[in-house]
Design a protein around this nucleic acid. Structure first.
Length: 783
DNA sequence: ATAGGGTTAG
């Protein structure tokens, strides 16, 4: 081999190092260099080539051969370490370089600062900043951007200034109340105000000049006109919900919590700013909850002559998602379409999420379908969007598709999909997922563990739920709440209460939902004093304004204890508008305690709020019947019939061998009906011998006692239990789910049946559910 | 040097 060829090759290659594209090319070149020369400058070149190609191993080895690496080599190795996530090594090399007396240049600081950011080490970052200033490199664009990014990300590490006494984190960060308020306000908003106050166009001249353009683009996308946009236009992102209870405002704009001073300072001192600088500043504000400021900077950026790019948009979209502002979200969507940014996966998943959070999953779905490529996050967004909007079956279907298309689920995927199984109480699916989770080693993730706790609790397996809960190393508020709610659903009030106290002892702050859980537990067990204490402690100690659920739980409790007037008083003085639902619990209590006078008063309120509320009309008519006021009862029923109202039959179902069997009352369509009926008869006789006395109070039909007993016996949950007994092996726990409250007699009967057959029977009632028709579930594929 | 997704709800 002649020596001329490789040398010429070397020369040409080294003049243009970016022509080396692959690992083998780089290694060949390296070999040639070692063979032909011992020049260290060529070694530096090959090191930077390795570093550029992201070849950590090769770069590391090459670097370690250098005795006194020049600045260029330090630069290469630091960048290589940082880009491979070896932040400690990156910092160590930086320190080593200083020790060797080498002066870092402006190429080094972005990597070093990124390492500080990823290590969450603000102190270190600040001293690096000092170093930057001493070297006079703070005017460098890249360094400035990296500094800003660091201060944005490490905002939380900074000691927060003096806290106002009532300020607590979850109030500021919990997104749910805002969304809840929004959904409630939808019912109240009827005026359609003009939504054309284009957010992007208003001041930024660089954007579309025609104000109608966005609307047009969006209309091409969205053919439906459902008034949502207009109704929504009243909600401004500046309207941070603030509830006043006893003169104390309970929510603050998070702006007061964070200060972006250092970021702003760096930004303002930068002599040159590019789009990255602006985007960093916007993202910093957005992610620290200072949304209004973030949006203002977008406009400012437009005035500075820079067009929002895909980074800007995917930073801004989550803001509109959080404030449920679909009209502004659609503006961004239109802007993305017009500027050819629509195939960007980042924008895509932000749009999917935004539409989903605005309860418009169909639109999320369309964005998803139109994306040329799906990554794990866009899959997660669409799956989470479906599940969060109650489309559990669709969520599961998409999850399957995701797995089929060889996209590996990430841990977020599991925490998004588990609630679907929990709500559908499909334990077999949940168990499969649990297996998948363990195999993927995601089982130590708090989010996933919390949803597993919820899943097992909802599926009636409270012990396994507790077992999973106990294995969580650092349970967060949601884990505690899921477990407490599990106990509440199973009627284990004392466990729920002691867990709640334990949570408080461990300094985990309960939030809105945690109080719903613990109050529900009290309410199921009739613990009036406890629930009053909790109810008051909620606003007093934690600054949480009681919501509908809390009022409902306490009112229900008072009502069931016969303290009807107190319950009435509580509901009447609520600081929010009571709904028909809250009044209905009191109406139920009026029936139990036979207080016709109050019942009429309450019913009037309900009928005014919800003229079509069938349950209450049936309830009221039953109250009249029980009081012997047949005429009133009849007239109510006739009125209902006249308006074409019919009560939907309740339905129970049981999962046997991965198949769901659904029953309605007196349902004779099941293929094993004869056997079920026979089993029920045998059991009924046995139950009576065991001392069972049917409680026919709930059966208000004007029929003979004998007939009443038959009606009780043919309730859907009993059919389902009987089917469970004859079709599952002895010793198996029978888990029946019902989509309305379990009747009192069935509750008693279940205990007797359980005793007779020597098996645990769990009847769970769920009010929100998927649809059953002719004994089949609407999501047949999954059963 | 900058961006998107997650758990609990009588």
């Amino acid at each position: 081999m002649s020596t001329a060829t490789p040398n010429t090759l070397l020369k040409t290659l080294l003049q243009n190092p970016s022509s080396i594209k692959t690992r083998s090319q780089a290694k060949q070149l390296h070999a040639q260099i070692l063979k032909s020369t011992s020049s260290s400058s060529l070694i530096n070149t090959i090191l930077s080539i390795y570093s550029n190609l992201g070849l950590l191993q090769e770069a590391h080895l090459t670097f370690s051969t250098l005795v006194d690496p020049p600045t260029l080599s330090w630069k290469s190795i630091i960048r290589c370490y940082t880009s491979h996530g070896l932040f400690h090594q990156s910092i160590a090399s930086f320190i080593g370089m200083r020790a060797f007396g080498k002066y870092p240049d402006h190429h080094i600081f972005p990597s070093v600062l990124k390492s500080c950011t990823c290590l969450m080490d603000l102190k270190l970052g600040e001293s690096v900043h000092a170093c930057v200033i001493r070297l006079g490199l703070d005017s460098d664009l890249y360094t400035g951007n990296a500094l800003m990014n660091m201060y944005c990300k490490l905002q939380q590490c900074r000691e927060e200034g003096p806290k106002s006494p009532n300020l607590n984190e979850h109030q500021v960060y919990d997104k749910t109340p805002a969304r809840r308020l929004f959904k409630e306000s939808l019912n109240n908003l009827s005026s359609s105000s003009d939504s054309g106050n284009g957010f992007l166009q208003r001041e930024s001249s660089s954007l579309s000049s025609k104000q109608t353009a966005d609307t047009e683009t969006c209309n091409n996308f969205d053919h439906r006109v459902d008034g949502f946009v207009h109704r929504n236009a009243n909600i401004e992102f500046s309207d941070c919900p603030c509830i006043i209870v006893d003169g104390i405002p309970l929510r603050w704009d998070s702006k007061e919590v964070f200060c972006m001073e250092s970021v702003r300072k760096v930004f303002e001192r930068m002599p040159v700013r590019d789009i990255v600088s602006w985007n960093t500043l916007i993202a910093g504000n957005a992610q620290n909850g200072i949304h209004r400021e973030a949006l203002m900077i977008v406009r400012e950026m437009g005035l500075a002559g820079l067009k929002p790019d895909s980074f800007t948009l995917s930073t801004v979209l989550p803001i509109f998602a959080e404030y449920v502002d679909v009209s502004k979200g659609k503006e961004i969507h239109g802007y993305a379409i017009r500027n050819g940014l629509i195939s960007d996966v980042f924008i895509g998943s932000s749009l999917i999420d935004m539409y989903a959070k605005c309860t418009r999953v169909e639109d999320s779905r369309r964005v998803f379908d139109l994306l040329p490529q799906h990554d794990a996050i866009s899959w997660n967004s669409i799956i989470a969007g479906c599940v969060q909007n109650g489309l559990f079956d669709e969520g599961l279907r998409l999850f399957r598709q995701m797995v089929i298309s060889k996209m590996k689920p990430k841990h977020v995927t599991f925490s998004s999909i588990m609630p679907a199984c929990a709500h559908l109480t499909t334990l077999h699916l949940g168990k499969q997922l649990h297996g998948y989770i363990i195999r993927s080693r995601f089982d130590d993730n708090v989010f996933i563990a919390s949803s597993l706790v919820d899943l097992y609790a909802k599926c009636g397996n409270i012990r396994i739920a507790r077992w999973i809960f106990d294995k969580i190393e650092l349970p967060d508020m949601v884990s505690w709440t899921a477990m407490i709610m599990g106990y509440a659903l199973h009627g284990w009030a004392n466990e729920a209460l002691s867990l709640f106290r334990q949570m408080e002892m461990e300094n985990v702050r309960p939030n809105y939902v945690a109080f719903v859980a613990v109050l529900t537990a009290c309410s199921h067990f009739g613990l009036i004093d406890e629930s009053w204490k909790l109810f008051h402690s909620m606003s007093r100690d934690y600054g949480i304004a009681p919501g509908l659920e809390h009022y409902a739980a306490v009112a229900d409790l008072l009502g069931r204890a016969g303290r009807l007037e107190e319950a009435y008083e509580l509901i009447s003085t609520m600081h929010i508008q009571p709904t028909a639902c809250v009044w209905s619990t009191l109406l139920g209590a009026c029936r139990v305690h036979k207080n016709l006078e109050l019942a009429e008063k309450v019913a009037e309120k309900i009928f005014k709020l919800e003229p079509d509320n069938m349950g209450s009309q049936v309830l009221m008519s039953n109250i009249y019947s029980a009081a012997g006021r047949w005429k009133d009862a009849a007239s109510l029923r006739i009125a209902m019939k006249g308006r074409g109202m019919r009560k939907k039959p309740a339905c129970s179902w049981i999962e046997v061998k991965n198949k769901v069997h659904a029953f309605t009352a007196d349902d004779k369509t099941h293929p094993y009906y004869d056997k079920i009926h026979e089993a029920l008869q045998v059991m009924s006789e046995q139950m009576v011998r065991e001392g069972y006395v049917p409680n026919t109070d709930d059966v208000l039909h004007d029929v003979e006692e004998e007939q009443k007993r038959y009606i009780l016996c043919s309730h859907s949950e009993r059919l389902a239990i009987a089917f469970g007994i004859i079709s599952t092996p002895y010793g198996t726990t029978i888990r029946v789910t019902k989509n309305l409250r379990v009747c009192v007699d069935c509750h008693t009967a279940t205990k007797f049946i359980s005793k007779i057959v020597g098996r645990e029977i769990v009847v769970r009632d769920v009010s929100r559910f998927h649809h059953f028709k002719d004994g089949k579930c609407s999501c047949g594929d999954y059963w």
